[in-house]
Amino acid sequence: MKKVSFAEFGGPDVLQLVDAEEPHAGPGQVRIAVRAAGVNAHDWRVREGQFQGSHPIELPAGVGLDASGVVDEVGEGVEGVEVGDHVFGEGSSTYAEFAVLSAWARMPAGLTFEEAAGYASVVETALRIIRQVGVQSGQTLLVSGASGGVGSAVLQIARDRGITVIGTAGAANQDYLRSLGAVATTYGEGWVERVRQLGDVDAALDLAGSGVIRELVELTGDPQKVISIADLGAPELGVRFSGVAGSVPEALAEAVDLISRGKLHIPVEKSYTLAEAAAAHIDSHAGHTRGRRVVVV
């Protein structure tokens, strides 16, 4: 099978499309014929070796966590899913023709493979950081870097829970944020004052890692009311960095519920082939995404 792999840490150019042995479903797993794989910031952070200190991996290594596809192997002890089912979820080395998933759910009606590929990690992350920051119905949440996949999920989940969201993004994405129910404003010079004019902030999330931790603490008045998923230096300022996933099966179940109720939709901004994985990482690293990027197999 074809698979995207890297044999050394580095820039996007280390990614190679190689011939590899097919993986097989172990106990508690399913294998899918991959139709699409989600592109996450986590993917290029792993490729750069950013997590070697905390979660070392052996090289050569595959790329990708999220995927959608058709079940073609069911591991020992797995119930409730059959060969031929259309599923989406999280596994490993998903930029490939076949991948093993450790958490999955059946795709809701009306969802394409390309759309479904982008949900697992971003919804789990969104649910986790909303919980960790402690924001409640009736309060206001500030989201810095709100237009990407995680931001898109946060805005819609928060709206469903009765939380007011102020979102920052580039000028081109202001209408997009408003379409998801957020009060939108641009980042850049003067953004803190623009946020203040929109109202008091009870909690804040840093999704872009653009060096705004001090300002988020200033706006909330308490570093414990700020969570970052993108700035590894956040703990130096007393802010929690959230990088350890919670229950992916629970997140997938909530995603299915939200999607089925018409409360969550994350658009696909751009699709890439396996051979274009390096370009997908370059674009993901650059940011300014509206929704999700996916690799289509």
Rank of each mutant, 00 (worst) to 15 (best):
I129N: 04
R131A: 15
Q132A: 15
Q132P: 00
Q132G: 00
V133C: 06
V133M: 04
V133G: 05
V135N: 10
V135F: 04
V135H: 10
V135P: 07
Q136L: 15
Q136I: 00
Q136R: 15
S137P: 13
G138R: 13
G138L: 10
G138I: 12
G138K: 13
Q139G: 09
Q139Y: 07
T140W: 01
L141A: 11
L141E: 03
L141R: 12
L141Q: 09
L142P: 06
L142R: 09
V143K: 07
V143P: 03
S144G: 09
S144Q: 14
G145H: 13
A146R: 14
A146Q: 12
S147Y: 03
S147P: 08
G148V: 05
G148L: 03
G149E: 07
G149V: 12
G149R: 06
G149N: 07
V150R: 07
S152H: 10
S152Y: 01
S152A: 14
A153Q: 05
A153E: 02
V154L: 02
V154S: 05
V154T: 02
L155C: 09
Q156Y: 04
I157G: 06
I157M: 04
I157K: 08
A158V: 08
R159N: 05
R159K: 15
R159H: 13
R159F: 00
R159W: 00
D160V: 08
R161G: 09
R161H: 14
R161F: 00
G162L: 05
G162T: 07
I163T: 06
I163W: 04
T164E: 10
V165M: 04
V165P: 01
I166L: 11
G167Y: 08
T168Y: 03
T168D: 01
A169L: 12
A169M: 12
A169H: 12
A171W: 01
A171K: 14
A172S: 10
A172Y: 00
N173E: 04
Q174E: 00
Q174F: 01
Q174W: 00
Q174A: 04
Q174I: 08
Q174C: 06
Q174H: 06
Y176C: 06
Y176R: 10
Y176P: 04
L177G: 13
L177M: 10
L177H: 09
R178I: 11
R178K: 12
R178H: 02
